[in-house]
């Protein structure tokens, strides 16, 4: 049985048959995926993006992509920062300029990454987001969007078996 977040959220932690065998063939990749989850959500060096903030932003992305199971997981990770819990609701716009810039980036790169321009990075920089934090934020958004898509297909495949 897998204790990885992705497989548990997709309901395939105990999958057998062809799907279980396929996941076992890619066990090293699923381990690296779990490691990437920890690096994006619970990094040793969080910089200017605290663990609780990351979790609430991940919950927001999960809700934008209609993934209730991952949203629930990220809500629980976010319990360390209850003051930021509103960020987990899509549509909620914080007033503080730095948080507003972070949320604008999260929403745009989850919903319409094709519209990204240099200006999106300028907005973060102008709001006081440091260069290394811009890379951390991009990595968080990119990982969660990957995880949501793998979970989506696994859930559909498990439903067929």
């Amino acid at each position: 049985m897998s204790d990885h977040i992705l497989e548990r959220a997709a309901g395939v932690a105990q999958a057998g048959g062809e799907l279980g065998a396929a996941l076992a063939t890619r066990a090293r990749l699923m381990d690296l995926t779990q490691g990437s989850h920890d690096a994006a959500l619970l990094p040793k060096t969080p910089g200017g993006l605290a663990h609780g903030l990351r979790a609430h932003l991940a919950a927001r992305m999960s809700r934008i992509c209609s993934d209730d199971a991952l949203a629930h997981h990220y809500d629980r990770l976010g319990e360390v920062s209850p003051d930021l819990a509103d960020l987990a609701r899509p549509g909620h716009q914080p007033e503080a300029p730095r948080l507003a810039a972070l949320v604008a980036y999260v929403d745009k790169m989850t919903l319409h990454p094709k519209e990204a321009t240099a200006q999106d990075i300028d907005i973060l920089r102008d709001a006081g987001v440091a260069e290394d934090d811009i890379v951390r934020l991009a990595g968080l958004v990119a990982f969660v969007n990957y995880q949501i898509r793998v979970a989506k297909v696994l859930r559909v495949m498990e439903g067929q078996s």
Binding site: T25, M109, A116, A142, N145, Y146, Q147, V153
Partner: peptide
Amino acid sequence: QEILDLTLSTALFGWANRLMHT
């Protein structure tokens, strides 16, 4: 197996695109 592998490579590029294109 092939469907899982296709899912991984496609989703991986949802990740890569969100880095390279932004």
